[in-house]
Simulated scan of single mutants.
Amino acid sequence: MSASGTASPQVAVVGAGWSGATAARLLHDAGLRVHIFERTMAVGGHSRSATVNGVLFEPEGPHIFHTSKPAVKDFAVRHGMRHSYEHKGLTQIFLDDADEHPYTLSWPPQVAELHVLPVWPAIEKELSGLPPTPCTRDFESHCVSIMGRTLYRLFIEGYTIKQWGCHPSDLSSTFAPSRLGLRTDGNRRLFRDTWEFFPLPNAQEVMESMTRPIPATFGQEIAAADLPELERAYDAVVLTVPLDTFAGRPGRLEWRGIRTVSRYIPLEDPDATVTPGYIVNHPSLRVPYTRTVESKHASGQSIPATVVTEEYPGAPARHYPVLTTDSRNERENVRLQEEIRKMTRMSVFFCGRLANYEYINQDVALDQGMSCANDVIRELRAKGRNTREGRAYER
């Protein structure tokens, strides 16, 4: 442990995804001595890309980076996030089980496009009777209150059942406002943020730029049992990992995972693609996967091949927290945070999707890394540790 006023404090950062890489770099730039521990053999976490015969694809899901915060944008651009790309979502729906061919429509739904559907009269009637404010009782009620029962059935219900493995009425409405809606403006952009990017050549190079000057140990999983040893060398620890696993109590938190199947497809035309868009949702229960991802739409590669990735829900992985109406998992995560803090004399900080048990996008994970770095500096300074004046980064 560093002596007060004589040396810069040391901070261990566990996990090298977006939040961990960001916090580590900002703490390093602020003059602290930082060490990263990553259980895999490389940085990047869930956002890593891959290539097959030169074709870039995303085996863990699409890399959607968007933000309206100048500090988040500037930090990402500084480390290589420079390829602007407007994300436009699509959904393929079947009106009923007898349909042979799906309708391909925008996601979120655009009212003007819905006029082509034979069920438009029912949709129009439901839209005219929507309540003045959305219902927040549960996810299903929220969806029905903003788009009516027919659009909910076509666009949301089956997707949600497949994705989460439960009925939509069992899920919290808290994550709904940022992820779905009904639009009337004709703007097909999936997000309304000021800046949107697709990481080229890949997302891990952005995080490698962040972590390049920082010592790191790869292939080592840090757990609560390691805290006494860490105490002998570090003043603080930043955790970006799932806390039930870290605490040695796997299963105390519910997680939902996906399994991806990627297909390499040779093409004659180097500019051709196979699917209608980068990300295409498939809400029908007739289709076993939830969506397809064809990264060539976003990368703009000119190459005589493509890769289409299908996402199948229900894998034993920690991709998505399960946010239920009673918030039982969020409360359990708070209890785990409290337990872990009591296990050590170090200052403990929790950052990112896994450690905070939140359903967030990459830009929010980066923003949390910024906030966490500032919190670390503030607390260590309050304890008399030798840190530079000011904040790690102005957010």
Rank of each mutant, 00 (worst) to 15 (best):
S2F: 11
V13M: 10
T22Q: 09
A23Q: 04
L27H: 02
V34W: 11
S47K: 02
S49W: 04
G54K: 05
F57E: 03
F57G: 03
F65E: 01
H66Y: 12
A71E: 11
A71R: 11
Y85A: 00
E86Q: 15
L90M: 10
T91M: 06
Q92E: 13
D97W: 03
T104E: 14
V116S: 14
P118A: 13
V119G: 03
W120G: 07
P121L: 13
P134Q: 09
C143W: 12
V144H: 02
F155N: 06
I156M: 15
E157C: 09
E157G: 00
D170E: 14
S172F: 04
S173K: 12
G181C: 08
L182V: 08
T184F: 12
D185C: 02
W195P: 03
W195E: 11
F198Q: 05
M210T: 14
T211P: 10
A216M: 14
L227W: 14
A236V: 08
V241I: 15
F246H: 03
T260F: 15
L267E: 05
H282C: 08
S284P: 00
V287H: 11
T290H: 12
E294C: 13
G300H: 06
T309H: 09
A315C: 10
N329P: 03
V334A: 07
E338Q: 12
R341Y: 02
S347G: 10
R353L: 07
E358D: 10
Y359S: 02
A365F: 00
Q368T: 00
C372N: 10
R378C: 08
G384W: 03
R395Y: 11
